[in-house]
Design a protein around this nucleic acid. Sequence first.
RNA 1: GCGCGCGUAGCUCAGCUGGAUAGAGUGUCGGCUUCCGAAGCCGAAAGCCGCAGGUUCGAAUCCUGCCGCGCGCACCA
Length: 605
Amino acid sequence: MDSTPNPSPLLAEVAAAIFAALPSEAGLTAEDVVEMLEAPPKPDMGDFAFPCFRLAKALRKAPPKIAADIAAALPAASIVESGQLAGPYLNVRVNLGKAAALVLPNLASGSTELAVTRDEKVMVEYSQPNTHKAFHVGHLRNVCLGDALVRLLRADGYEVVAANYLGDVGAHIAKCLWWFLDHLDEAGRQPPDRARGEWLGEVYATASNQLTSWQEAAKGGDADAAAKLAAAKVRTTEILQKLESGEPTITAVWEKTRQWSLAEFDEIYDWCGVVFDRVFYESEVGEPGLAIVAEYLEKGVFVESEGAIGCINEEVKHMPFFMLRKRDGTGLYSTKDLALARLKFEEYAIDRSIYVVDVRQSDHFAHVFLTLHKMGFAQADLCEHVPYEMVELPSGPMAARTGTVILFSELRERMVGHLTENYLAKYRGDWPDEEIETTARQLALGAIKYGMLNRDVNQKIIFDMEAWMAVEGDTGPFVQYSAARTASILRKAAAKGLTLSEATIANAETVAASLDQPEERALVLRIAELRGAVHQAAKTFRPNVMCTYLLELAKSINRFSNSKQCHVLSSEGDLLQARLLLVTAARAAIEWGLARVGIEAPARM
RNA sequence: GCGCGCGUAGCUCAGCUGGAUAGAGUGUCGGCUUCCGAAGCCGAAAGCCGCAGGUUCGAAUCCUGCCGCGCGCACCA
């Protein structure tokens, strides 16, 4: 699991050549050599660098001497064309034809799979929005991250179950329904035709704001506000109890309104290209959770404290008591998490259970897993929380209550509108309207997903819509642009009757030997890093690793596309075929790579 | 107070399983379109890698302490 299960064939070949030149006393395996290979600081120094520091002890020689000895012993006629000494480093240059033959044909012939299977099933739980609340950009980071992890893990050989966990019960629902039923008239209860979930979110925000302002006024001695607050609390508690007992009238309202939110979530996920295999609902784990609490209280694993029931986890020093049942006998988020954790393993026989939830809940999940462990739940150690930092606006943290949020619908409209007007409008009449629409969506999504993912998970993101809409530099649309150019070259070539032949794929080494430009060499080497990048991103749960790679790949493609010396259409013979092979593989690599982080590559833009 | 995270170029960030002269985007300045897309390419200026110790042949990277900022810490989710 730690080493790359299926390293790039190029890397393996280079390592094999160096390994063959290594004295046996070095004590290294060929796999060790793969791990040690790195890229020299400048491309003109070589294609791969092999640092010899670590061998000094075993060989009892100075690193530069070791590098020289290896260079002298390199096997002839291997992938390694020449070795160049640079102090303690041995820099090697590979034979470009051989290298190209190792990395390009598979991609060019449509085989983009990494051909790894691990016989390990992983569940990734993410998104977890609450019904009756608005969906905003803050929620989007989680969706982008979770979806990317699902795709990356699948590419890295795991069987993945993508799971969502919807918050369809709880105090926020009671507040929302309280306002909906008691403060809106018949007409006011009619939702709009579209964006009903957001509309419901406004109802909730109104209720929440009213309660907060009454609370503050009451603190200031306002008796009227205090009375209203008390009445509201009685009413929301009543609503909550009626919901829990399944009282028909309230339950019908809950089901109807809940459906409005659910329908909107479906539309959002659809637009984002996100698919879940299983959706859990809080409403299905409430009772099982309370049953667990009763069972383990009985067994003496859980204890009572100030009327509440919980588990003592000394490991969490600042707050060892993990509450699982309130004084009034009702459960909490934590209660349901115990039942949900168990349900996941029972239902899917998974080997690992991953929770993508923001970093503020790190303590919560530490408690959940410790508690499961104390319950004797065998799979407790197979659960893992993947935390990530929050998204804020330039004006500060987002808060639905104060209205300082960017709702999903607004984000979508503004980005699609901006991209259409500024970049795609010129194609009107030339392209089908439908393609312009689709492309705008792909680019908006590329900007959003790349922006959300191209940052380490423990870095806060300041979401500045203006900045994100400027699609230059380190952005999704930049990467998409380079992909579109490869497609464009292939399109133009095909129009001239120039196509990649089967013979080229079969004879790649000979044909590709005609490649001789530095941009071509750099592109081949960059494409060879694709597998490693996917594996690294999946292993560490950090899609930003993949974004960094994609940016480098895009730059390599642009340099190639921009170079007069690498012109494809005006090439002939083997060189033409070699370049068609390179462009076809580059297109496949960037398209597939983008897809690993949930981004589509338009054919033109 | 305790716990977690962040602090690298004017700005936003990579690099952090220790290794070559610390990289990218953006901004600034200067170049490149008779030839596959200028949403592009090339170049320049720009950094006591928060501070102080330690480990090491070698530290942005590991350890310790400190400073600054953010987040979390029982009846919400």
